[in-house]
Amino acid sequence: MSKHHGVARPAEHTDADTPAGTDAEAARWALRLQRGLDARERAAFEAWLDEDAAHAEALSAMQDTARRLRALSGSRPAAARPARRAWLRRVGLPAAGAAGLAVVAGGGWLAWQGRDDGLGAPWRLATARGEIRPIALPDGSQLVLDTQTQVDVRYGQHGREITVHEGQGWLSVQADPARPLVVHAGGLRIAVVGTQFTVRHTRSGLDAGGVRVAVEAGRVRVRRAQPAWRELVGESGLRDVSLSVGQAYVLDASGRSGVVPAPAPGAIALWREGRLDFEDTPLAQALEEFGRYGVTGAVIKDPAIEAWRVGGSYSLRNLAGFLAALAQQLPLRVEQDATGVFEIRAL
């Protein structure tokens, strides 16, 4: 089967991709409620409650269990605050169940309005296909977004936070020990004070489906995400991994992770200079990477050669130059048909 690169669009990620089960869903919603919901998430939460009365019961049980585990560990709940319980009446919870959840909510576990973490509303930044965009952040930090990248930025008096939903970026972070910057990308949490690094989380191209963090200057701390119930009770068996210059951390699509060598500082994020760097990269993946910047019109006619390895540094705007180099590196030929499509075949 032929593969046409640079045309197909990646599927959107949904909660259906995560493990199923009412308890797992309740844990996720409990954590989201603790962090705060935006209007879209609140609507989804209400729809989830309406699906089945068991959902509200599972949520109540999850919150009660978390409260008890907190108490056993000696931690104290946050100061009580009013909670909106209209949704309890909507789903018809028994009085006992409603009272039990009200105690948890009053203890600060469930906050309909969201917890006050000192950060402002998300500031959405995005780039179109083929666009590379430098951005000056409010604190003097510098952010460069690669093509097809979408991030949320939140700044406040006590912290700074960036969430990478898709794409990759380069960050030069202004040092502020009182307000460390935390970056969330896929299954990783990256904490920094003042440093330069890149983070990548894409659905196609290099490291597709995974996350890669590479340090250009200074140090960063990386931690894998943990199950929602662990975060709810403040328990974690995970440790931070400290990265310095010349090191990268990779979490691949299969869940394997570890520290690997990073390119030299001058060779990190060459896409900022309009170049793509490949080292022992599968041919199909290299073409997908070109496709992130524009329609390539390249078709691999022989599936057997998709895994063949390529290397070198190329202009991301010069696919023809890359294809010409392929014929010198590998036993294949590239031909352009009457419609302008490049067909790649083994010799």
Score class of each variant (00 low, 15 high):
residue 230 R to C: 10
residue 123 W to V: 12
residue 172 S to N: 08
residue 203 R to F: 00
residue 155 Y to D: 03
residue 180 P to Y: 13
residue 126 A to P: 02
residue 146 D to Q: 02
residue 102 A to Q: 05
residue 220 V to S: 04
residue 209 G to P: 12
residue 100 G to A: 15
residue 181 L to Q: 06
residue 215 V to H: 00
residue 100 G to H: 13
residue 217 A to I: 12
residue 118 G to M: 06
residue 113 Q to G: 14
residue 160 R to N: 08
residue 118 G to A: 05
residue 201 H to T: 03
residue 194 G to Y: 11
residue 86 A to Q: 09
residue 123 W to E: 15
residue 172 S to K: 15
residue 177 P to E: 04
residue 110 L to W: 14
residue 124 R to L: 12
residue 164 V to S: 02
residue 205 G to V: 08
residue 147 T to M: 02
residue 119 L to V: 08
residue 198 T to K: 06
residue 141 S to I: 08
residue 164 V to W: 00
residue 191 A to G: 06
residue 231 E to N: 04
residue 143 L to G: 03
residue 130 G to W: 01
residue 156 G to S: 04
residue 168 Q to P: 03
residue 162 I to H: 03
residue 106 G to M: 02
residue 175 A to G: 04
residue 175 A to T: 04
residue 180 P to R: 07
residue 142 Q to S: 09
residue 199 V to Q: 02
residue 175 A to V: 01
residue 140 G to L: 13
residue 154 R to S: 15
residue 125 L to T: 10
residue 159 G to Y: 02
residue 163 T to D: 13
residue 106 G to E: 05
residue 85 R to A: 14
residue 183 V to C: 04
residue 210 G to P: 05
residue 230 R to L: 11
residue 98 A to I: 03
residue 108 G to M: 14
residue 104 V to P: 11
residue 87 W to K: 01
residue 205 G to H: 08
residue 108 G to L: 14
residue 88 L to V: 05
residue 221 R to N: 07
residue 128 A to L: 11
residue 89 R to Q: 04
residue 95 A to R: 13
residue 132 I to T: 09
residue 107 G to Q: 15
residue 84 R to Y: 14
residue 154 R to L: 14
residue 210 G to Y: 07
residue 154 R to I: 12
residue 101 L to Q: 07
residue 100 G to W: 08
residue 187 G to L: 01
residue 213 V to P: 12
residue 194 G to L: 11
residue 98 A to Q: 15
residue 105 A to W: 15
residue 229 W to E: 11
residue 152 D to A: 15
residue 148 Q to V: 10
residue 84 R to S: 15
residue 167 G to A: 10
residue 135 I to L: 09
residue 201 H to V: 06
residue 181 L to P: 06
residue 117 D to E: 03
residue 178 A to K: 06
residue 227 P to E: 07
residue 200 R to D: 08
residue 175 A to L: 07
residue 208 A to I: 08
residue 217 A to V: 12
residue 172 S to A: 12
